[in-house]
Simulated scan of single mutants.
Amino acid sequence: MASPLPKTMRTILQTDKNSSKLTMKEVPLPTPTHPNDVLVKVAATSPCLGELWWARDFPDSVPVGKEPVPGQDLAGTVVAAPEGSAFKPGDEVFARIDASRPGAGREYALARESELALRPKSLDWAQTTATPLSALTAWQIVFVQGTLEAAGVFGDKEARKRNGEKRVLITGAGGSVGGFAVQFAAAAGAGAVVAVNSGSKAEFVKSLGATEVVDYTKVTVDAWAAEDPASREVDLIADCIGGSTMKNLWAALKDGGSFISIAMPPDMVKPEGYGKTPAKSVFFIVTSLGSQLAEISKLIDAGGIKPLVDSVFEFEQFQEAFDKVESRKTAGKVIIKVSV
């Protein structure tokens, strides 16, 4: 017989949207507010860079009265699910909780059934927690918004043939999202996977599947592309960084190529008088889809795909964990253990 649930739990709260200082309080367990809410005992969560400033900087995207619990990445065990749910108590799951709702920085969290998937059996809890947000974002930038075909990662010969005709350039290739994007593009059979990162990570990103490396500390992407435009132009740019250097990426895009960014709209930095016509240039925000996580889970368990974990903190070290993420001095995801 399952143990009865406690009446209260510890939760991380951001009490002031203008401050990154967090607090921990004892509060009642969350109550389902939607027919498809699934209650999960949280094993671990992970901070997302910038999430503590969303309520301040993007107030229209944060519902009024949202309980300010951070942590979009969720890994844990189902303790209660609605009747007819695909999940049952005891299932070990992972998810990216949509940013419009309270996160997983607490001992029990609510996730929508549509966000959940069974976690990869080959990963430990820290690796599992490092996966949902980063992997979903990478999957969508490469396969949903981007032009590679996901069927290629599961061996579809025709999809792999078409993917093999495309060159992909990925910025931030040594980071958590970029690292997954490199792995997905390589697994799908892309003709070339160009990684933009510091030279110190060159061998690492090659181990993930990059076929070429542009060391941004030594050469800008536009200068690199100009050395041999015919062979260096790419069909897809997957930008994970944004910022002023994003302008230089346009020079590497083929006429009719696609420029996808998770940082800012590419057209904001398009060079004046740019002569090529992209098929697509968009900024997008990740969608929480358990169906895609289930595909990613299968791919991980098949071997060869892995998340990037920077460090692991105890639950009581939540402030240190968030501060480290905000420092931008990480090599992968920072994990906060909650009940493991």
Rank of each mutant, 00 (worst) to 15 (best):
G256Q: 09
A321M: 07
D310Y: 06
P271Q: 09
K254W: 12
S207Y: 00
S311M: 15
S244Y: 08
P4H: 08
A75C: 14
S3R: 12
K161M: 09
F180S: 07
K333E: 10
K17Q: 14
I170L: 07
F322E: 05
Y108N: 05
E227I: 00
K201R: 14
T147Y: 00
W125V: 15
W125L: 13
V312Y: 03
P30R: 01
E227L: 06
T287Q: 15
A230F: 11
K324R: 15
Q127W: 01
A138G: 06
T245H: 09
D239P: 02
T211V: 07
G174S: 15
D235P: 03
K25V: 00
V142W: 00
E272S: 13
T171Q: 05
K41H: 13
T147W: 00
G275P: 08
L136N: 10
V234M: 05
T131E: 07
V340G: 14
K337P: 04
G172W: 14
L148M: 10
A210V: 00
E316G: 10
S19G: 09
A138P: 09
V334L: 03
G164L: 12
K121Y: 08
R112F: 11
T8L: 00
A173L: 03
F315G: 01
S198T: 13
F154S: 14
G242N: 09
P102Q: 14
V168S: 11
K121S: 15
L116V: 07
A43W: 10
L148R: 04
K270Y: 06
A302H: 08
F180H: 03
I305F: 06
F315H: 06
T147L: 13
S85T: 14
L123A: 06
R101A: 12
A117R: 14
G50W: 00
D60S: 14
K88C: 07
E295T: 00
F284N: 11
G90A: 14
L110C: 13
G256E: 09
P229A: 06
E272P: 01
P6D: 08
A294P: 02
A159E: 11
A151P: 05
K306V: 13
S281N: 15
T171H: 10
L29Q: 03
D98C: 09
D37P: 04
T11Y: 01
P229H: 12
K276M: 01
T8S: 05
T129H: 07
Q317C: 02
S281D: 15
G189H: 02
E165G: 05
K298Q: 14
Y274R: 11
D156P: 04
V286K: 12
P229W: 13
V153L: 09
I237W: 07
G242P: 04
T245P: 02
L22W: 02
M264K: 10
D222N: 10
K324V: 14
A55M: 07
E158P: 02
